[in-house]
Design a protein around this nucleic acid. Structure first.
Lengths: 108, 108
DNA sequence: GCATTATATGAAAATATTATCATATATTTG
DNA sequence: CAAATATATGATAATATTTTCATATAATGC
């Protein structure tokens, strides 16, 4: 195993990229509806779009946009069955974010 | 200790509020510059504004806006010493978010 | 008091995100 | 095949966030 020395600048760029990736993930999650979807799916395992809409009391189109967005970004996965499309968590690590935040104090 | 029964609707509202708080915290953190600041402060403990600017190669005004924003939302704290203002993490739990995300896979 | 340095502020411009609405597509049922 | 149901799509409108720039404030040293 070789040891690779990074220059100051390479380290800077690497860290920058790491922060961009983290921000990207956090952003796709940082919305009350999307968090509610994640929370719901972590409990139910799998749900159809309509049931999610009812559970969250939101319009179908809005929920659909959010679901597709999260799927696109690798947080959710979906599976079609007849008329229904069932969504589920793909990236389960994401639930830990919610747990992690429970202990945070903030000024709202 | 009393047991308090919540109605279906009360539970719904409580969960909604919980998600809003979580989204609020996640949003104040979900930005590459703000994450970089958090990362930096978690390592250095305390830093003056100018040093943060240099470390991140960003304009003073931009960094200032982000710092003040995070302070306002209870993530950072600051302490004045002569010409300098030293910022530090107030809510250290927040660092765990970054660690938590290291294990996440996503489509960027 | 004047120049210098560090930080903050505020408005405006540039971008990005979110919600809404109308409609399209696809599947099932009769 | 027509009607009904579930979901997706795309454009637009509504909002919110981020950056930039010019300038203000505040502390220090001379």
């Amino acid at each position: 195993m070789e040891t690779i020395e990074l220059t100051q600048n390479e380290r800077f760029q690497a860290s920058k990229q790491k922060m961009e990736k983290a921000a990207y993930i956090l952003k796709t999650v940082a919305h009350p509806i999307r968090l509610a979807i994640i929370d719901l799916l972590s409990e139910e395992g799998e749900m159809g779009v309509n049931d999610i809409c009812k559970a969250l009391d939101c319009e179908q189109s809005l929920i659909s946009h959010h679901l597709i967005n999260m799927k696109l970004r690798g947080i959710l996965q979906s599976q079609k069955d007849g008329l229904n499309v069932f969504y589920a968590l793909k990236e389960k690590e994401i639930v830990k974010l919610l747990q992690c935040i429970e202990n945070c104090d903030c000024n709202m």
